[in-house]
Design a protein around this nucleic acid. Structure first.
Length: 560
RNA sequence: AGACCCAUGGUGUAAUUGGCAACACAGCAGAUUUUGGUUCUGUCGUUCUAGGUUCGAGUCCUAGUGGGUCUACCA
């Protein structure tokens, strides 16, 4: 093996390697990704998914997909399906079939009975309000419930009746008997089971009692033999409870390890806030290309590998973090630069007439598809007397450092000829430049240029007679503030970027792009990366802007 | 108020576990370029504070400061 630089380990990898070295669990590594099927996956989930799957892969382990479906009121199979699709899109495959916490309802019930028999759980008749009132406060001990000292027999009987449906919703709960004075509120006799008669998306009406997160998650981990249960920092206070149940139940000791969730500037990940964006039509849906959801980023054209690279670059620690969205964009560009074929498209067309080019003549110009990857080959582009260039590539009176077209200047059309700009025509009313007149140097053809003419710059272009028309949707960040939901007294909706979507309906695209499939990605030369939207049809092409190219000229201009 | 977690350039993450603080992104300057892209080179800038242990502290100890989390029959 080569002696490469020793790769540094994050703190979770360090724990795992230590466990492997100590032959803990026979050196086995088994992780899980445990979404609740009540919403769409977003960039934050991508981090958890990437971590769980890649870390298991790295140590020859496995990763389960387990739906944490213990709350029938909010959960649905629609989410189950989309979540699976998103994980597969990222390129991961879970071990075996998808698993469900609801598969373990009977086992969980039996666990609860065991705890009752040990005198470690009791049925409480108190209302939710009473339980909250008796909970105490931060720094203030709670009070024990009057039902806390029921006999094991009575508890067993009442719990069985709860299951049979003898009591109305909310009438009783099963609680763990731990310590009402504990400084960790979660250890003040946490609720294990509640009565709820909602129809469950998988078990239907089979159950009317459902376990709470704390009495389902760790137990499910244990049942599946999960060795390292990775979760975000907000569960750190749950760990003593996680461990307490495992110890009292005497079951497989999964270990919970917490890491800081990833925050990305200009993005929000609150399910509630995302839902509101959809409900109030600030976006077109969960898969709107501006959404931080995986389905949104997919539609936007972010390659899954770029998202994974981004998650890895963000790293794993226990600190609060705010990662620059620029890093995500860098990962997207870096990936697309290698993989996306170049085509030419003129977003804001300006007609150029080549006055010395024969009318009715067409030449085929050979253009490389990707200078980064020769194997992607070349294509032919028709060239004729009238072409479109980008309006921004012409200036009546350009400054010295402007490397584009202006009166008297020579500019190359990429892959074609060098043009000399002779004249331009303005609209009498608006003053807008309508047309530019040029002459071409016949011996300057790309690849066989003997003209000796120096071009000021190189422009992309499309032959007017051959161009295809397309709609292009220019997307920008959804919010104008890096942390829209972190401002006191202001709502995140106050920071919605009014220019997050701009629709161009008369874009000219070079003709030889073939049959376009939704999701297909291109670099519009000099303009950015674009992908075919699912709305696109053979008659009406629709492209989404994934991300712009890095633009040194724009930056220089901004500086003035 | 109590408990718990955290603190390294603008941002994020490292530092062979006590031995010359580095990598990436962003920024700046330049070279190359038939994409003002890519690539390449250079450059800017970092250990929260105060004590202590030590030959030696980003790393260990104490205190402080700052930030975060926790009182759902949600997950």
């Amino acid at each position: 093996m080569t002696n490469e630089k020793k790769e540094s380990l994050n703190f979770i990898e360090q724990i795992i390697e230590e466990d492997i070295n100590n032959a803990k669990h026979g050196g086995r590594v088994h992780t899980r990704f445990p979404p609740e099927p009540n919403g769409y996956l977003h960039i934050g989930h991508a981090k958890a998914i990437t971590l769980n799957f890649e870390i298991a892969q790295r140590y020859g382990g496995k990763t389960n997909l387990r739906f944490d479906d213990t709350n029938p009121t909010t959960e649905d199979t629609e989410y189950v399906e989309n979540i699976q699709k998103d994980i597969e899109w990222l390129g991961f495959q879970w071990e075996g079939e998808p698993l469900y916490a609801s598969d373990y309802f009977q086992q969980l019930y039996d666990f609860a009975v065991k705890l009752i028999q040990k005198g470690k759980a009791y049925v409480d008749d108190s209302s939710a309000e009473e339980i909250a009132a008796m909970k105490g406060d931060i720094g203030v001990p709670g009070k024990e419930s009057p039902y806390r000292s029921r006999s094991v027999e009575e508890n067993l009987e009442l719990f069985a009746k709860m299951k049979e449906g003898a009591f109305p919703d909310g009438a009783k709960v099963l609680r763990a008997k731990i310590d009402m004075g504990h400084h960790n509120l979660l250890l003040r006799d946490p609720v294990m089971y509640r009565i709820k008669r909602d129809r469950h998306h998988r078990t239907g009406d089979e159950w009317c009692i459902y376990p709470m997160y704390d009495f389902a998650h760790g137990q499910s981990d244990s049942i599946e033999g999960i060795t390292h249960s990775l979760c975000s920092l907000e569960f750190i206070h749950h760990r003593p409870l996680y461990d307490w149940f495992i110890q009292e139940l005497e079951i497989f000791p999964s270990r919970q390890i917490e890491f800081a969730r990833m925050n990305v500037s200009y993005m929000i990940t609150s399910k509630r806030k995302l839902l509101k964006l959809v409900r109030d039509h600030h976006v077109t849906g969960w898969d709107d290309p501006r959404m931080p959801t995986l389905s949104g980023m997919r539609r936007r054209g972010f390659p899954p590998m770029a998202i994974r690279t981004f998650c890895n670059k963000a790293g794993i620690t226990k600190r609060e973090n705010l990662i620059d969205m620029g890093l995500l964009e860098f990962c997207v560009r870096d990936e697309l630069n290698k993989t996306a074929p170049r085509i030419m498209a003129v977003l804001d067309p300006l007609k150029v007439v080549i006055t010395n080019y024969p009318e009715g003549q067409t030449e085929q110009m050979t253009v490389v598809n990707n200078p980064e990857d020769e194997s992607m080959g070349t294509r032919e582009m028709p060239f004729s007397r009238e072409v479109y260039i980008e309006r921004g590539d012409f200036m009546e009176d350009p400054p010295k450092k402007y490397f584009r077209m202006g009166p008297g200047r020579n500019v190359r059309l990429k892959g074609a000829y060098i043009l000399h700009c002779d004249d331009f025509v303005k609209d009498a009313e608006t003053g807008e430049v309508k047309e530019v007149h040029c002459t071409y140097y016949p011996d300057s053809r790309s690849g066989e240029d003997t003209s000796g003419v120096k071009a000021k710059g190189t422009l992309h272009w499309v032959s007017a007679a051959h161009a295809r028309t397309a709609e292009v949707r220019l997307y920008d960040r959804l919010f104008s503030d890096p942390t829209p939901d972190q401002h006191e007294g202001k709502d995140y909706l106050d920071f919605l970027n009014p220019d997050s979507l701009q629709v161009l309906d008369r874009v000219y695209v070079e003709p030889n792009v073939g049959e376009l499939q939704p999701g297909e990605q291109f670099q519009f030369l000099r303009m950015g990366y674009y992908c075919v939207d699912p709305d696109s049809t053979a008659d009406h092409l629709v492209f989404n802007r994934t991300v712009t190219l890095k633009d040194g000229w724009a930056k220089a201009q901004k500086k003035g």
